[in-house]
Write a protein that binds this DNA or RNA. Structure first.
Lengths: 199, 199
DNA sequence: CTGCATCCGCTTCGATACTG
DNA sequence: CAGTATCGAAGCGGATGCAG
């Protein structure tokens, strides 16, 4: 599952996968890749640029796991509030997190809004339009709101567990944007319907 | 996940769970149950009837995993065609299998139909009605078609990988029902859209 | 540098015996 | 029925080596 999660962000090299799976033994990764290839979940693809090597990518059957992983992530997302422990957070997951929370949300009654969200290293944009929400893996210069915080605070704000004001007051987040834009953010965040985890 | 799968069919006792998880060590099961209770996935419930003991049941958060498990099962279902190896098949999973294949299928253009499906030990009924498909965990005496076969053949027939005639010819299935009913079965089975697994 | 294979210490597991 | 205790076997994380 972790390998599929990595590949769900796009084709990756052996070394990229290693980097995304801290602690995995190289023989185990190699064996799992063979096994997943045999099961028709991923394909090997030899490439010569930028460096000679092998690209691993999901097959159609592997792609079919993506919505399931997203639902599993959505189920587990409330646990992010309990802090990360020694879990790692890859900046590229910001897109995944935003899609998880907003991708099939209704925008009924909410005015368009552009949000820039950053964990310090990477920045993404959430574009709330008339009848859909789009996620972009880059910073929109026209953003109405800008939020910068650690992953678990970002999650707390985006999922409505923490208001922008509370997050700013606790000093864990820096937020820029006028009152109207913040209000629209709060309205959207309140629509994220997750079942909270205990304690 | 396997424990949640077991509990997704209803509350179970320690011994029931053991029976549904062949090979699990009792200490491991006990530890997992404590862990899952702590994580808010299941609850312990002491009962005195029919025998004094403990019932385990999913919490609301645990119930939220059921559709995810169903989607995972749907993803993995094509692998049933490759035979079971030493995998076990619990007769109670027939309901799960039928729901997985038919529960949110459109019945447009298909006349009502009652099917009785049996693996020899348990029998369930699939009731195709005007605008929905219902699964019953019992045999309907009014069934238009009766199918009896081993789990992987049942799956092959119900998912349209094998026609009723092919299955009968190979001697792995016994099917009773007139031509019209068989034809409706084939039409429904063809609507199950699973991505086939390789070889 | 990429993509592995090999080896080792440790954790975890399956199996079984036993208890309130 | 609902677990706890114990033990050998298997699998894993981590370090290291090495061919293309």
């Amino acid at each position: 599952m972790l390998i599929v999660r990595e590949l769900s962000l796009g084709p990756r090299r052996f070394t990229d996968l290693r980097g995304g799976l801290p602690g995995i033994a190289t023989n185990l990764l190699a064996e799992r890749l063979r096994s997943l290839e045999g099961a028709g979940v991923l394909e090997r693809h030899e490439v010569s640029r930028p460096l000679p090597g092998v690209l691993y990518r999901l097959t159609e059957r592997g792609e079919a796991l993506k919505p399931i992983l997203r639902d599993l992530a959505r189920w587990g997302a409330p646990l992010m509030l309990q802090g990360q422990g020694d879990d790692a957070f890859d900046g590229r997951w910001l897109v995944f997190l935003a899609e998880l929370l907003y991708s099939d949300m209704s925008t009924e009654g909410v005015a368009p809004l552009v949000m820039a969200v950053s964990n310090g290293a990477e920045t993404i944009s959430i574009l709330v339009e008339r009848d859909s929400v789009r996620i972009e893996p880059a910073e929109e210069p026209t953003a109405d709101v800008r939020i910068e915080a650690d992953p678990s605070t970002l999650f707390a704000i985006l999922s409505g567990q923490l208001t922008p004001e509370q997050a700013e007051a606790s000093g864990t987040a820096v937020i820029k944007g006028n009152t109207r834009a913040r209000k629209r953010l709060a309205t959207l965040a309140a629509r994220v319907g997750l079942i909270p985890a205990p304690s």
